[in-house]
Design a binder for these strands. Sequence first.
DNA 1: GAAAAAACCGACTGAGTACTCAGTACAAAA
DNA 2: TTTTGTACTGAGTACTCAGTCGGTTTTTTC
Lengths: 197, 197
Amino acid sequence: MKKKEIILQVAMQLFAKKGFKDTSMAELSKTTGAAEGTIFYHFKTKQDIFLEILKTAKEDILSEFTRFTENRKFKTGIEMMEGAISFYLYLSELKEDLFLLLHRRYPFELAEVNPVCRDHLESIYNCFVDIFEQAVLAGQADGSIGPMPARKTALIVFTMVDGLVRFKLYNLYDAGTLFDELTASCRRMLENKPVTV
Amino acid sequence: MKKKEIILQVAMQLFAKKGFKDTSMAELSKTTGAAEGTIFYHFKTKQDIFLEILKTAKEDILSEFTRFTENRKFKTGIEMMEGAISFYLYLSELKEDLFLLLHRRYPFELAEVNPVCRDHLESIYNCFVDIFEQAVLAGQADGSIGPMPARKTALIVFTMVDGLVRFKLYNLYDAGTLFDELTASCRRMLENKPVTV
DNA sequence: GAAAAAACCGACTGAGTACTCAGTACAAAA
DNA sequence: TTTTGTACTGAGTACTCAGTCGGTTTTTTC
């Protein structure tokens, strides 16, 4: 494996676990085995390393997204929603470092002044919310999900699932036992209830 | 106002807006008008400033909590839940700096190695979740909320509301338009539905 | 196999960091 | 009036930081 790839991979882990500011180039050099000069040969600045990490992460997430929407077929929209929630939780385990990174403040602060960073972040988050929105729209088409604004509902579901991921990543609460309750809550929230009047 | 109070107040703002690490003692000294020596006369370390901020924040939140539970009377549990959600959003505006601070990673990282910090954080978050839990329990007693695990449901509602606050603090989405949808979603999620079989 | 190019090295730089300390100002106590 | 104690000062300290630079090794090209 080339040094550049090693640097990107190790930087991702360190930025995720310790934060961008709290990871020094000296530490990155030591962990990768590449001299500090080598790191700055491949990347102009420390920030550029972060942006390249985010770029590959975006491509990664987008390909996972198409893999999910193409391969999986669901009977109802509400089942698709449960599949989407499971998919998000599955991804958060598969790519734990990325999710740790995205739960830090640095990416958002950088996004405020750096359009490239903003674009990457938007792509990633739109991708996630889109999946939930598609599930709502599908459910409303087949009658399994009641009438409600699709995008807003998708955002609300996203906050719930991402909150669960946060509990899991920070070890704040046994997320496993919360998962069943979360899907049940979503189901009650979304279900198409016949009007009783 | 004494210099010590000014230091605490300004440090709170800077830690919230720029982060703990990204706030230097030189900047804190300049902004407060107190010499760096003065800051270290009142506080042994930079971390101690943060811990004292968190301590007063805890006391603050706990007194708001009792104010909410004592003064407000609700007809049903589900109305109490809506009141609790509004209360949380109201607090997040009233004490924006504190909520910005609590949405950073530093407090949680410090909590992992510092029991004092952990205690303060636990007190604050338990306080919030307790309000939601009490609403669920009250609703189950009066029949407005269906049978579901109270604590877990409270945690799920917390992730939703805190997610909305995050949207608002980070300016990610027009939180005002999401609020109505959030309360409606919670209502659907919690409502006691008669069994139709 | 020589020349050119790309990859790599680590000592070095200067700006910035949290924190120290000898000393000042000033009010209350003796 | 003298002493004592508290709030305060800012230059100084040892250290860390991202980024540089002159030079060496490895790979590619012809």
